[in-house]
C-alpha cells in the first residue's frame, strides 16, 4: 500500500447492553464494528457504504476516537491513537476532523460563523485574536461563502450553506484526514452536487484524504477512488469505486446496486431487480457464519459455517465463500 496515512487493523467497537436497576448486569453486546481492517492513502477519497445500522457511523466515530475501541488499532501517520492518552489524542486531533450529516444540528445556534470558525484556530493557537478575522475570511472564501456573512448565525443560512460552514470548521486546522458522515444526505439534489464538487475540489487542492460515508451508491461512485461496503459491522467488499459499483461481486453489493432506482424509465421498467427479503439482522445476535446468509439468494449450507474472510478476487477484496459459483 503506497503511503497510507490512516490505517485500521482489526478494529472492533462493541457496546454492552445492561439490564436491571438494582442488580445491573450485562446481558448482551452490540457488535457495531466487528473486525475492520483498511487503510486510507494520502490524498485518497474512500467511500464507505451500507444500510443504516451496519456500523458505518460507529466506525467514523471510532476513527475519531469519539467512542472507546474494544479492540484493534487506529494508526494515523504512524501514531497509534487507540493506545494514546487523552492528551496525546488532543495533539493529533487537528490532523483528523469530521463533518456531520445534519448541518442543522452540528452547528451551535448561538455562535456566529466567526465564532464557530475562530474557536478551533484560537484553541490550538494557530493565530492571534487580531489575525482571526483575516483567517476566518480566508476559510469562508475557501468553501464559497462571502466573508461579509461572518457575523450571521446558523439559522440565517440555508442547508447547503450550513454544510459549507461545517466543512470550513473541519478545514480550519488544515487537517490531513477528514471523515464526512453522510454530508449530503440531508440536502436537495441540486445542492448535493454543489457540496460534492466542493469536497472533491478541496481534497485535490489541499491533498486531503477523505473518508466519505453515504448510503447513496451513485454519489459514492462519483466522488470516491475506492469504496468499502459494510454489512453488520464487517467489510464485505473493498476495491476501486467504479469496479465495485459497476461489477459488484459480493451478493450483498449486487443487491445494493440493483436497489438503486435508475432515472431512466426504459431501463428502470425492464431490468430485473434483486429485492432482498427482510430487514438487516440485529448486530446483537448476528447470524452464525456469514452474517448475510439469511437474506442471500445464493446462500448454501457452507455459508452458515465460518465467517468468510476477505480474499482477493477480481481485483478487489470480497468476503464470500461461494465466489465464482453463482
Amino acid at each position: 500500500m503506497p503511503d497510507p496515512i490512516l490505517e485500521l487493523q482489526d478494529v472492533r467497537t462493541h457496546f454492552p447492553i445492561h439490564e436491571g436497576f438494582v442488580i445491573r448486569r450485562q446481558t448482551g453486546t452490540v457488535k457495531a464494528v466487528d473486525g475492520v481492517t483498511l487503510s486510507v492513502r494520502r490524498g485518497e477519497v474512500l467511500g464507505l457504504v451500507g444500510e443504516s445500522g451496519c456500523g458505518k457511523s460507529t466506525l467514523a466515530r471510532t476513527i475519531m476516537q469519539l467512542v472507546p475501541t474494544t479492540g484493534g488499532t487506529v494508526i494515523l501517520e504512524g501514531k497509534n491513537l487507540t493506545a494514546g492518552s487523552a492528551a496525546e489524542i488532543r495533539n493529533v486531533r487537528h490532523d483528523l476532523q469530521m463533518v456531520f450529516q445534519d448541518p442543522f444540528a452540528s452547528l451551535n445556534p448561538r455562535m456566529t460563523v466567526f465564532a464557530t470558525l475562530a474557536e478551533p484556530l484560537l484553541v490550538h493557537g494557530r493565530c492571534t485574536a487580531a489575525e482571526a478575522t483575516r483567517e476566518v475570511a480566508e476559510l469562508m472564501q475557501l468553501v464559497g461563502l462571502a466573508p461579509r456573512f461572518m457575523q450571521k448565525y446558523p439559522h440565517e443560512f440555508s442547508g447547503g450553506q450550513r454544510q459549507r460552514i461545517a466543512i470550513a470548521r473541519a478545514l480550519a486546522l488544515r487537517p490531513k484526514v477528514i471523515i464526512a458522515d453522510e454530508p449530503v444526505s440531508a440536502l436537495d439534489v441540486s445542492i448535493q452536487a454543489q457540496i460534492l464538487n466542493l469536497l472533491s475540489q478541496l481534497t485535490r487542492k489541499m491533498n486531503l484524504s477523505l473518508v466519505f460515508i453515504a448510503h447513496d451508491l451513485s454519489v459514492v461512485k462519483h466522488i470516491s477512488d475506492r469504496v468499502a461496503v459494510m454489512y453488520l459491522g464487517k467489510i464485505v467488499e473493498l476495491g476501486s469505486a467504479v469496479e465495485v459499483i459497476e461489477h459488484p461481486q459480493h451478493p450483498y453489493t449486487r443487491a445494493l446496486v440493483s436497489a438503486i432506482p435508475v432515472p431512466d424509465p426504459d431501463i428502470e421498467r425492464n431490468r430485473r431487480r434483486i429485492v432482498l427479503p427482510g430487514d438487516p439482522p440485529s448486530p446483537i445476535n448476528p447470524p452464525a457464519g456469514c452474517a448475510f446468509h439469511p437474506r442471500c439468494p445464493h446462500a448454501k449450507e457452507v455459508c452458515r459455517g465460518a465467517v468468510p474472510p476477505l480474499v482477493t478476487h477480481a481485483g478487489r477484496e470480497v468476503a464470500c465463500v461461494r465466489l465464482g459459483e453463482f
Binding site: 441540486s190 448535493q192 454543489q194 464538487n197 451513485s218 454519489v219 462519483h222 469505486a241 432515472p263
Partner: peptide, 23 residues
C-alpha cells in the same frame, strides 16, 4: 433539464458535477 443533469449517476466520474447555481 437542470434537475435531470444534476443526478450524479448520469454523469461521468471524475468530471465536475453539474450544478444549478444559486438557490
Amino acid at each position: 433539464r437542470a434537475l435531470q443533469h444534476s443526478i450524479p449517476s448520469l454523469q461521468a466520474k471524475g468530471s465536475e458535477l453539474f450544478t444549478i447555481p444559486g438557490m
